[in-house]
Amino acid sequence: MPVAKTDRLPIRSGEDVVRVRQTVRTRAIEIGLSLVDQTKIVTAASELARNTLDYGGGGEARVEVVHEGARRGVRLTFEDQGPGIPDLAKALADHFTTGGGLGLGLGGAKRLSNEFHIESTVGVGTRVTIARWK
């Protein structure tokens, strides 16, 4: 899948999470997503960036503008070298949290995206990829 544009952003602080949101918003506007779809992908990005920070001990976000035929989309990848997730099904279930949260981030990000993919290995880290298409 051709990638038109890539940003790599560090996630080390709450301010970095804000920057990730802003970059995702800019790209979502560029590919012409509706306001509702922009809001959905930015919200999903916020959830995943915060998980990277809070549970992954920090990491990186990759924000890409991708093309597939005439379709354009934004694809986001969040990657950390943190403790990993021992039970993915559990982590994805609504209201499951190990950090005193609402337990909505992962499941919510999945619902807010057109594509969702998660890989995690205990002791190695976690990578979540989502996409939203125009």
């Binding site: 306001l35 509702v36 922009q38 809001t39 959905k40 959830e47 909505l104 499941g107 919510g108 807010l112």
Partner: peptide
């Protein structure tokens, strides 16, 4: 747009 998104998020 925020209200619509909140529902899907599950908040």
């Amino acid at each position: 747009a925020v209200a619509i998104t909140l529902v899907e998020l599950g908040l």
